[in-house]
Amino acid sequence: MSLPATDDRLDARQLAEAFRQFSEASEALTGAYAGLQTQVGQLTERLSVLMGALPAGVVVLDRDGFVVQANRAVEAMFGQALAGVEWAHFSAARLAATDTPGEWQFETAGETRRVTRVDAALESGDGRIVLLNDVTDAHRMRLAVERNERLAAMGEMVAGLAHQLRTPLAAALLYTATLVQQEMGPADRERIGNRAIERLRHLEKLIRDMLLFARGETLGREPFSICELVAELTQTLEPLARAKGLDLASACTCGDTRVVGDRKAIAGALTNLLENAVQALDGGGVIRFDAALDGPLARFRVADSGRGIDPALQSRLFEPFFTTRPDGTGLGLAIARGVARAHGGDIGIQSEPGHGTTFTLTLAMGA
Rank of each mutant, 00 (worst) to 15 (best):
M1N: 08
S2H: 08
A5N: 06
D7A: 15
D8G: 08
D11T: 04
A12D: 10
R13D: 10
Q14G: 01
E17Q: 10
F19I: 12
A25I: 07
L29N: 06
Y33N: 13
G35I: 10
Q37D: 12
G41Y: 05
G41R: 11
T44V: 00
R46K: 12
S48T: 13
G57T: 03
V60R: 05
D62M: 01
G65S: 01
A70H: 04
A70M: 06
F78M: 02
F78E: 04
L82M: 01
A83D: 03
W87P: 06
L95P: 05
A96R: 13
W104P: 00
Q105H: 09
E107I: 07
T112D: 01
R114P: 00
T116R: 13
R117T: 09
D119K: 05
G125A: 10
I129Y: 07
N133S: 13
D134K: 02
V135C: 08
T136N: 05
T136S: 11
A138M: 06
M154V: 03
G155F: 00
E156T: 05
E156V: 04
G160C: 00
L165C: 06
R166E: 04
T167F: 10
T167L: 14
A172P: 02
L173K: 02
L174I: 06
A177C: 11
Q182E: 15
G185F: 03
P186Q: 01
I192T: 11
R195Q: 14
A196K: 11
R199Y: 15
R201L: 15
R201C: 13
E204I: 03
K205G: 14
K205E: 15
L206S: 01
G220A: 08
I226R: 06
E228Q: 14
E228K: 10
V230I: 13
A231M: 05
A231L: 08
E232R: 15
Q235W: 11
L237W: 12
L237N: 09
R242H: 12
R242T: 15
A243T: 11
A251W: 03
T253D: 14
G261W: 12
G268F: 07
A269E: 08
N276H: 10
A277E: 08
V278I: 15
Q279P: 09
Q279V: 14
D282W: 03
G283L: 01
G283C: 02
G284T: 07
I287Y: 08
R288A: 15
A292N: 12
A292L: 14
A292S: 14
G295C: 02
L297D: 11
A303C: 13
S305I: 05
S305V: 07
G306K: 09
R307A: 14
I309F: 05
S315A: 13
S315V: 14
L333M: 05
A336G: 06
I347M: 13
G356V: 13
